[in-house]
Amino acid sequence: MRFKKQKRHRKTVRFFSVNFGFRQPFKVLCDGTFVHHLLHNDLTPADKALSNCLSAPVMLFTTSCVLAELKKLGAAQSASCQAARKLAVARCDHEKKVSADACIEEVIGENNLEHFFVATQDADLRKKLQKVPNVPLIFGLRNALFLEKQSKFQDDFVKSSEEKRLHLTEKEFKALEKRITSDSANVDEEDSVDEEGLGHHNPGLQPHITRNYSGKEGDVKDRVRFKRKRAKGPNPLSVKKKKSRENPNRASGKEVKGDDGNAEGKRKRKRSRKGKILAGTDGAVQ
């Protein structure tokens, strides 16, 4: 049962985060009834209990009108008043203090710009805030805290806003229509210029002036022609290495002498005598 509750809470938190931009740490606006419920059921510390409910870090807030209302209740709510004073105070701009539910409604407004989660035990206040699109509600039941599922009004609001994003507004439609008409007018002007010739339709359009260039500049053509890249030489990886032409004997420091005793650069050829020996054997057989 606890796992299902956490799964449902995560789904609700994801709904408000994706559609309305709620970000961690979540801000929770508490009234006096909720603070009293936390103390009465030993759900302390409050920030830990709420972070477990939302599976995320939280910041707790209240208003000066809520503190004033708890103070008016006297000693019966003194512990709740002291606990509420430890919370951060959200600005409500009420010179003359009003009731807690009226103050919270005014702080939330129509758009909940501060992205508050509202924690209250007041059922009437929760019903009123269910008609505001982006207000998630938290309440306590005995020793457990619950995050209310988004109301039908909030679901319908999200669906209608998604449909509006898919369609053009009146302003966007007029701008698009104006652009289409201007583009069609430009196309008609270009067609008329092509039929009648340049310079007759629009004085702002001037024909291209060709200049006479001398020398190499006269060979310049109107259209740019890209040169095709060609291989400038053989691939060095596919070419065999060149053999050195130096005399191996000269490189080794040896000299070959001829018949006259002079050193020669040429290498002396050795002749084989196999041919002569074969010729001699043939004569002997005969």
Rank of each mutant, 00 (worst) to 15 (best):
S160I: 03
K254G: 09
G265V: 14
K221W: 01
Q206W: 06
D155C: 00
L166A: 05
S160H: 04
G218N: 06
Q121K: 05
P203T: 03
G233I: 02
F34G: 00
L29D: 00
K128C: 13
V107Y: 02
T210V: 08
F34V: 01
A76L: 02
P203K: 05
E170N: 04
V66A: 06
A284Q: 11
H40F: 12
T62D: 06
M1Y: 00
G253D: 07
V28R: 01
T210E: 11
N134C: 11
S252C: 12
R245G: 14
A49H: 09
D260N: 15
V193Y: 04
V118C: 04
V220I: 13
K4V: 11
F20I: 01
S214M: 08
D42R: 14
P236I: 12
F61W: 14
K274I: 11
D47P: 05
N41Y: 15
E217M: 07
N41P: 07
D260K: 15
V98G: 10
L198G: 09
E148H: 05
K242Q: 09
V18P: 03
R23K: 13
G32D: 06
P136D: 01
E177C: 10
T12A: 14
N235M: 06
N249W: 03
T62E: 04
A251N: 08
K243A: 14
L137M: 07
F3G: 00
L168E: 07
G109T: 13
Q286K: 08
L60V: 08
D93W: 05
R223L: 10
K149V: 00
P248Y: 07
T210W: 07
V89R: 11
G197N: 07
G265W: 11
R273P: 10
S17T: 14
C92S: 13
K178G: 15
D259W: 09
D260R: 14
D101H: 12
G74M: 03
N52W: 03
E105A: 15
K242E: 13
R126V: 05
V187T: 12
L137K: 09
E170L: 02
N262H: 13
R2E: 09
A56F: 09
K242M: 05
K221L: 10
D124E: 15
F16R: 04
E195V: 13
N186E: 13
A123W: 02
K164A: 10
G109S: 05
R91L: 08
A83T: 02
